[in-house]
Amino acid sequence: MNENQRVGMFRALQLFFKNYANFTGRSKRSEYWWMFLWNLIVGVVAIVAVIGVLATVGFAFNPSHIPGSVFGALLGVIVVVFIVGLAVLVPSIALAARRYRDAGISPWWLLVTMLLANILSASDQFINGSMSNTLVMIGGVLGIVHLVICALKSKPEEA
């Protein structure tokens, strides 16, 4: 891709799925952040769909009874969200690896900034007390480090 060529919203979506499992090469900041926005939009739509299903029967006000049709609709929304999440998992990791390389950082750092961050952030499910809070905080900091790396300017390619 040309050094000065900008990637728009729909071109980023196209490149995201075209490079589904391409962990080599580089990706511009605009490509990463447009896909970040796409994923955010899809996530908000999913949350609104879940809230909409629950609100249609007043579940928020009477959680003791969920009619079968609402349960089915809610389960359907959750299954779709799960499938979409699985469908974008590999290309999201591949895009992050390319973005790290473009910023001059080894893609192996993804293991720390994404995998370890997610493990530590979920540690409160398994560990109680102040240690859990500390691990969750470290996971959050690693997540911020990931976002900072993805925001770095592109480094010139080495010959």
Results as ranks from 00 to 15, higher is better:
residue 43 G to L: 05
residue 130 S to V: 15
residue 54 L to A: 14
residue 85 G to I: 05
residue 130 S to P: 12
residue 96 A to C: 14
residue 120 L to F: 04
residue 49 A to S: 07
residue 18 K to L: 13
residue 136 V to H: 03
residue 129 G to L: 01
residue 61 F to I: 15
residue 90 V to E: 04
residue 148 V to G: 10
residue 33 W to A: 00
residue 11 R to V: 13
residue 71 F to M: 15
residue 16 F to T: 05
residue 10 F to R: 06
residue 7 V to R: 07
residue 142 L to H: 01
residue 156 P to I: 03
residue 3 E to K: 14
residue 154 S to T: 11
residue 95 L to Y: 00
residue 18 K to V: 13
residue 12 A to F: 03
residue 109 W to S: 00
residue 91 P to S: 01
residue 41 I to N: 06
residue 32 Y to V: 01
residue 37 L to R: 06
residue 10 F to A: 02
residue 57 V to P: 07
residue 31 E to G: 02
residue 74 L to Y: 12
residue 24 T to E: 14
residue 47 I to C: 10
residue 136 V to A: 02
residue 21 A to Q: 08
residue 133 N to T: 14
residue 78 I to G: 09
residue 32 Y to M: 00
residue 9 M to G: 08
residue 110 L to F: 08
residue 78 I to D: 10
residue 115 L to Y: 11
residue 120 L to R: 03
residue 27 S to E: 03
residue 8 G to V: 03
residue 66 I to D: 05
residue 54 L to V: 07
residue 102 D to L: 00
residue 25 G to P: 06
residue 83 I to F: 11
residue 59 F to S: 08
residue 68 G to H: 15
residue 82 F to K: 08
residue 66 I to W: 09
residue 118 N to H: 12
residue 84 V to E: 10
residue 112 V to E: 05
residue 95 L to D: 01
residue 45 V to Y: 01
residue 129 G to K: 07
residue 72 G to F: 12
residue 16 F to S: 02
residue 90 V to K: 05
residue 59 F to T: 06
residue 87 A to K: 01
residue 58 G to T: 07
residue 14 Q to C: 10
residue 89 L to M: 07
residue 102 D to W: 01
residue 30 S to P: 07
residue 3 E to Q: 15
residue 97 A to I: 01
residue 18 K to I: 10
residue 71 F to N: 14
residue 78 I to R: 10
residue 155 K to G: 10
residue 110 L to C: 04
residue 32 Y to H: 01
residue 39 N to I: 09
residue 76 G to S: 06
residue 94 A to Q: 00
residue 141 V to D: 02
residue 136 V to N: 03
residue 142 L to K: 00
residue 82 F to R: 02
residue 155 K to Q: 14
residue 159 A to W: 12
residue 154 S to W: 02
residue 51 I to Q: 13
residue 101 R to L: 09
residue 51 I to W: 12
residue 13 L to F: 11
residue 62 N to V: 14
residue 74 L to Q: 08
residue 5 Q to D: 15
residue 50 V to Q: 12
residue 111 L to P: 04
residue 46 A to H: 09
residue 156 P to H: 08
residue 138 I to R: 01
residue 151 A to H: 07
residue 17 F to A: 03
residue 156 P to E: 12
residue 92 S to L: 07
residue 82 F to Q: 08
residue 79 V to L: 12
residue 47 I to W: 08
residue 108 W to D: 09
residue 102 D to Q: 00
residue 56 T to Q: 15
residue 37 L to P: 06
residue 99 R to E: 07
residue 61 F to G: 15
residue 77 V to S: 00
residue 56 T to P: 02
residue 130 S to N: 13
residue 158 E to R: 15
residue 140 G to N: 04
residue 62 N to P: 10
residue 32 Y to G: 04
residue 118 N to V: 11
residue 121 S to Y: 12
residue 159 A to N: 14
residue 87 A to G: 04
residue 14 Q to Y: 15
residue 21 A to Y: 09
residue 10 F to W: 11
residue 106 S to Y: 09
residue 124 D to V: 14
residue 25 G to L: 07
residue 129 G to N: 03
residue 67 P to S: 03
residue 3 E to I: 13
residue 50 V to E: 12
residue 94 A to P: 00
residue 44 V to I: 11
residue 28 K to M: 08
residue 5 Q to N: 10
residue 8 G to C: 04
residue 15 L to A: 06
residue 129 G to R: 04
residue 96 A to W: 10
residue 154 S to D: 10
residue 126 F to L: 09
residue 72 G to E: 13
residue 111 L to V: 05
residue 50 V to C: 10
residue 156 P to Q: 11
